[in-house]
Structures are given as structure tokens and as C-alpha cells.
């Protein structure tokens, strides 16, 4: 029996598909993205379809998600940042559901793929840059010039530029690494359970890694939410900088 903790991250084609000379096959990862989006769509539309004044539990959860993100955007990016609410809401819900559904045994974690998180982070930064230039024109470049004596600026401006351009990397790697590490850890401990369980006299010892899996799963639930939150709030903070430069600090 092959127990490779990395095997769960493998992308396997289900329906081969090509556009031009690009391989855009429908894979297990595509399937799980569809499941994630389908689950969110069901959750956000079915639960709210009755529009009850006294909400059911599901409707309440949908409303809480909405208000949570709306408060996040309004608080971190200001009133004019609320224009970006649908965008931030989409990212938050997508990451949150990917992280949560990825915890189901046998599922595929969409956010454990660096290219997925990097594409999202790249899109966020691209939007920040476009918004910044649209709003402030060339003045957006003042973002890289903090208030400091000229000699210090020689040092600070390159630092600001580098930190800005490493944002998509930090943003994507943070989410990707968290998901990857957590799931790998779960798989490693699971393999211990199986290995010990088949080891005759040592079999009762399998309870120890089993208990650890339960504990780590609980931790991973927290991480799943936290990383979705971090991704969304950083998006808001970057958008705030694009909208208000350094005014709001």
C-alpha cells in the first residue's frame, strides 16, 4: 500500500481538454473548485431565498458571512472601499470553503496549490495597482516614498518597492503553505495509525497518533478560517493603500 503524504496534492485529469496548445483538462482540482463554488452558491442563495425577517440558522449564517466581510471591508478600506466588497466577498468565501471542504477525508484542497493562491494574489495586487493609478494617477507612486529625510529615502524607497512586489508572493505562499503543511501533517499521522495498527502487539499504540489527528483537525479548522480571514483582510488593507495612499495610517 502506497502512503505518500504528497499524493493528496496530485492533480489528475478527469476529462482531457485542450484549448490551442494549452492543456486545460478538467481535473480533480477543477472538480473540487466546482464543488466549492457550487456549495457557496447553494449556501448563499438557498439559505437566503425565504428572506425571512427572523432568519433560520442557515440564513443567519449567510447573513453573518455577508456582514462579517462587509464590516471587514468597511473597516479596513473605508467607505469608498465598499465598491470592492463583491470582489473581497468572493475571495473570502472561495478560500474559506476551499479550506473547509479540503478538510473532508478524501477531498482535494484547492488552496493547497501554489498556482491557485498565486493567481488570486496576483489578481489582488494587479487590482491594487490599477485602482491606485486610476485614483491618483502618477501620484500613486508616492506610496513608495514615506515621509522621511532625503538620505533615509535612498534606503527606504527600495525597501518599500521590494516589499510591495513581494506582496503577491507572501500573500500566496502564506495560504498555500498553511494548507499544505496542515494536510501533510494529517496524512503523516494517519500513516502512523495504519502502520502501527498492523504491527501486532504494538497496535494499541496507534491510539496516540489517532488522538493527535483529532487534535490537529480541530487546529486545522481554526487555520482554515484564519487563513481565509488573513487573505481577505490583507486584500482590504492593500486596497486601502491604493485608495488612500498613506493618509489613513
Amino acid at each position: 500500500m502506497a502512503i505518500n503524504p504528497m499524493e493528496q496534492f496530485a492533480v489528475k485529469p478527469i476529462v482531457p481538454l485542450h484549448i490551442g496548445h494549452y492543456d486545460v483538462s478538467f481535473t480533480n482540482q477543477s472538480l473540487w473548485m466546482c464543488i466549492v463554488v457550487g456549495a457557496i452558491t447553494l449556501f448563499m442563495t438557498m439559505a437566503t431565498s425565504r428572506r425571512a425577517l427572523v432568519p433560520s440558522r442557515m440564513q443567519s449564517m449567510a447573513e453573518i458571512s455577508y456582514e462579517f466581510v462587509a464590516n471587514m471591508v468597511g473597516g479596513a478600506a473605508g467607505e469608498d472601499g465598499l465598491r470592492f466588497f463583491p470582489f473581497v466577498f468572493t475571495i473570502f468565501m472561495f478560500v474559506l470553503f476551499s479550506n473547509f471542504l479540503g478538510l473532508l477525508p478524501g477531498s482535494f484542497t484547492v488552496t493547497s496549490q501554489i498556482i491557485v493562491t498565486f493567481t488570486m494574489a496576483g489578481f489582488v495586487i494587479a487590482m491594487v495597482v490599477v485602482t491606485g493609478f486610476l485614483k491618483h494617477g502618477i501620484g500613486f507612486l508616492k506610496l513608495f516614498v514615506p515621509k522621511a529625510p532625503f538620505l533615509l529615502l535612498l534606503l527606504l524607497v527600495p525597501i518599500e518597492v521590494i516589499s510591495f512586489f513581494t506582496r503577491p508572493i507572501s500573500l500566496s505562499v502564506r495560504l498555500f503553505a498553511n494548507m499544505l503543511a496542515g494536510h501533510t501533517l494529517l496524512k503523516v499521522f494517519a500513516s502512523f495509525v495504519i502502520a502501527l495498527g498492523g504491527a501486532g502487539l504494538l497496535a494499541p499504540l496507534a491510539a496516540a497518533p489517532m488522538f493527535l489527528i483529532v487534535a490537529i483537525t480541530a487546529l486545522e479548522l481554526l487555520v482554515a478560517f484564519l487563513q481565509a480571514y488573513v487573505f481577505a483582510i490583507l486584500t482590504c488593507i492593500y486596497l486601502n493603500e491604493a485608495l488612500h495612499l498613506h493618509d489613513h495610517h
Binding site: 492533480v11 486545460v24 463583491p86
Partner: peptide, 26 residues
């Protein structure tokens, strides 16, 4: 290429759902 393609497709769909339907309703 497949991952980016399907990510863009699904996210675009989700964005439209949340932006045009679920969001305004909530």
C-alpha cells in the same frame, strides 16, 4: 494552465452569483 483556467472560470461564476444575486438579496 488547467488550474488557472478553471480557477478563473469558477471564480468568475462565483463573483457573478455573489455580486448580482446573493449579495443584493442579503
Amino acid at each position: 494552465p488547467s488550474q488557472i483556467f478553471w480557477l478563473v472560470v469558477t471564480m468568475a461564476f462565483l463573483f457573478v452569483v455573489l455580486w448580482r444575486f446573493a449579495g443584493p438579496r442579503i
